[in-house]
């Protein structure tokens, strides 16, 4: 299965999770969340409130090369300044937030700060708005375009953002947080991967799980319409 088709699986699964969501926010470089929110709003949940950094309820006809592009604001219902996103979440009014993690640990905490390898510092960009959003949004959805044991670790060296993720999307599987165990468990495995592969490439204990359902033709059609050039596969490269 090529990268575009794999991205479609992830987008479809994200979109279906948003069927009962009240609101969702995506930040920078969030191509999969962007398309997932757009699909959900068209097919499943037209009333979903879509917060972006540049405006309230965008109605994009295509996805630009940046998910904070002012172009997205062209067809918004209202203006929204970046600072307000954080206020909305701090007030407890944000349901879903999409967050990326350079490192994601078994508790669902994110490290976007830095790590030390043999005493040498490796600097990440920083967690942007993640610290506040992970801690205060109702259902954080975490995603990452790669899956290896350096990314999915038992305990992150630094905690940039702490919170309880609703789901964690990887190019191999979907994790969810088992609240009793206090750690991530496998919720579904993408059809091109396997329990064995996830076990090998994850730095914490994992379990077997059912296969991630395939995207529908309707979903793929919308994804293709908004992203005809396949920008979405960039995050999986």
């Amino acid at each position: 299965m090529n990268l575009l088709e794999r991205a479609n699986y992830m987008i479809s699964a994200m979109a279906r999770l948003l069927k009962d969501a009240d609101s969702a926010f995506m930040g920078v470089a969030s191509f999969l969340p962007f398309l997932a929110i757009a699909v959900t709003k068209r097919l499943y949940n037209p009333d979903l409130v879509w917060y972006s950094i540049v405006g309230f309820n965008p109605n994009p006809y295509r996805m630009p090369m940046s998910t904070v592009h002012p172009l997205i604001a062209e067809y918004c219902d209202a203006k929204l300044q970046l600072a307000e996103i954080f206020d909305i979440s701090a007030r407890g009014e944000l349901d879903v937030v999409f967050l990326a993690g350079a490192q994601i640990d078994s508790r669902g905490y994110l490290n976007n700060s830095h790590i030390y390898i043999n005493g040498k510092r490796l600097q990440f960009p920083g967690g942007a708005g993640g610290a506040l959003l992970h801690a205060t949004a109702k259902r954080p959805i975490v995603w990452q375009g790669k899956h290896d044991p350096r990314i999915f670790v038992r305990e992150a060296q630094r905690i940039t953002a702490a919170g309880k993720p609703y789901r964690v999307f990887t190019p191999l599987c979907i994790f969810r947080l088992d609240r009793e165990l206090g750690r991530l468990v496998t919720d579904s495995i993408h059809p091109w991967s396997s329990y064995e592969e996830i076990k090998e490439k994850t730095g914490f204990e994992v379990n077997d799980a059912p296969t991630t359902p395939e995207p529908s033709d309707e979903e793929i059609e919308i994804i293709q319409e908004l992203d005809p050039k396949g920008i979405r596969q960039l995050v999986l490269q």
């Binding site: 510092r121 490796l122 600097q123 960009p125 920083g126 942007a128």
Partner: peptide, 21 residues
């Protein structure tokens, strides 16, 4: 003093990273 330094789709801010590292 920042929350994030990067180039989004163009990748990581190499000079910033190196200077910090």
């Amino acid at each position: 003093i920042a929350g994030f330094v990067s180039f989004e789709v163009f990748g990581l801010a190499k000079n910033f990273r190196k200077a910090v590292e």
